[in-house]
């Protein structure tokens, strides 16, 4: 068997991170699919004014901003989970 780069410490937060990652991925995917569907089904809708901008630019920039927000949220929860669960695990090992 080929070896990985190095042996990582057991990550007790990995299942939480994986689950959160999948949920956030699907959340973003739905918004992204919505963008494609509107473009294909009703391109005129994209031209409707939204203040100084229009739906196309608002939605497009919104997708970029949403990606950044979700990325930071994911990192915040993941880092917190790693801190909490991996420290608990270390404490348990030390107690034993």
């Amino acid at each position: 068997m080929h070896e990985p780069a190095q042996e990582w410490k057991k990550d007790s937060a990995s299942s939480i991170k994986e689950l959160l990652g999948i949920w956030l991925f699907f959340l973003y995917l739905i918004v992204y699919i919505g963008f494609i569907v509107i473009n294909v089904v009703s391109p005129k809708f994209m031209g409707i004014d939204v203040g100084s901008l229009n739906v196309a630019i608002t939605y497009g920039l919104g997708l970029i901003v949403l990606a950044i927000i979700l990325a930071f949220a994911y990192n915040h929860v993941s880092s917190h989970a790693e801190e909490l669960l991996n420290n608990d695990q270390r404490r348990d090992v030390e107690t034993e």
Binding site: F25, L63, I64, A67, Y74
Partner: peptide
């Protein structure tokens, strides 16, 4: 631009 950035969601979350 929109598509290139959206691709990073797959990279990060998955």
């Amino acid at each position: 631009s929109i598509g290139y950035l959206a691709g990073w969601m797959v990279a990060l979350f998955i």
